[in-house]
Nucleic acid binder design. Sequence first.
DNA 1: ACCTGAACACCGTTCAAGT
DNA 2: ACCTGAACACCGTTCAAGT
Lengths: 240, 240
Amino acid sequence: MAQRDGAGRAPLSRDRVLRAAVVLADRAGLEALSMRSLAQELGVVPMALYKHVANKEQLLDGMVDAVVAEIEPPADDADWRTVVRGCVLSARRALLRHPWAVRVIETRSSPTPGVLAHLDSVVGTFRAGGFSVDLTHHVMHALGSRVWGFTQEVFPSPPPPDPEARTAALRELSGRYPHIAEIVLRGGGHEDASVVGRGCDDQFEFEFALDLLLDGFERLRAQGWSSAARSAGESRAQGA
Amino acid sequence: MAQRDGAGRAPLSRDRVLRAAVVLADRAGLEALSMRSLAQELGVVPMALYKHVANKEQLLDGMVDAVVAEIEPPADDADWRTVVRGCVLSARRALLRHPWAVRVIETRSSPTPGVLAHLDSVVGTFRAGGFSVDLTHHVMHALGSRVWGFTQEVFPSPPPPDPEARTAALRELSGRYPHIAEIVLRGGGHEDASVVGRGCDDQFEFEFALDLLLDGFERLRAQGWSSAARSAGESRAQGA
DNA sequence: ACCTGAACACCGTTCAAGT
DNA sequence: ACCTGAACACCGTTCAAGT
């Protein structure tokens, strides 16, 4: 009865389908995940999957929640800032473990239950920390995708490792986009291939922006900021 | 000679292909844009497109640059903050005109020339405004996707307009995700379907976060911040 | 030399035929 | 009643055959 070919498989279940999908996406990439390839991985016929997930979109929804479930619950004995920071960095670690997850989260048309639960807990932390509903609302928007521990990178990737190609690439960059080149060269001025263009420290950049925002949040909270005064040009003066 | 069927078409060109692709994506959505549907739109056989774009990825690259070309050049007679703000909001307007563009930018594996040119001009504005190369670097990362005028939204979409379904949805939300519900209800306390859950003012939220970051940037610039001091836990004290 | 239709190797999903 | 193989309506792209 049931599936029992090859290596004596347990019967299919929604959970087993989702876990296999996560493993497959981790190993082979998102573009290699199809209903057909996943079925083959599980040793079943493609249509058997449709007993456990309505369609591919719902499969992806389930995969997102599986990743979100890896986020550690916050230690709630600290101040709001420490707790939020911990939550966000834990989310970031979960998403770094599954590089495809960011792309899948971005393409969901509506948030999954796991995603809502995570959001709710972060909102609750702000509220408990003395943020008004109003300020909490805007602050959550300001965090944006950073609540998930990611930001899409828009910077060019580091130059090629081959010294000759690298020097040529940097020279071209300097000619066409001088200001970007200056950053890639980090003000050192040397075009020496061995020391420059070492790429960016993603973790540092993430925490830099996160802390800048958290600092701003704390300032607004302390001064009792409210959006009630919002009108023409008012927002410019918010931090003054 | 050339294509001259039906309504007497001009000969194909890379530019005509790209413009048709943008129009098609605007009208029918990104998922309706295929090499086949685009060819049909242009009254040619699918393979004819491959004379002007190497493959679909390159077609999408070209479409991104077509949208980026709509960003207005900054008025450079103002202070850095006004110029950057203007650039970013102009980029935002261009992307709002082509709702598919955000998704396409996010999936590009490397930045296109138009994208690099936009980045370069923003970097140049910071530099001219007295930012060090070092600070400019981190500040660009902190802006992240906001340089493009967008942030992915992670908040749930507004509740359904039908009063009865709306009340039910809100009641469920309150039970499961009380903190999110509080924000949706905006602290008013009333569950009256007509006044609550009016959704978010995207433009306000965008500018709120943008100005918070710009305020932070100005503070760091004024105090001569440098990443040189970065080490264990140092980043937390950046705004102090 | 140029163009292009048929074909290839895929998709997600429907549906009717088989047990 | 249950399961599933074949089929449908698509993809992007290759390639050889036709002019």
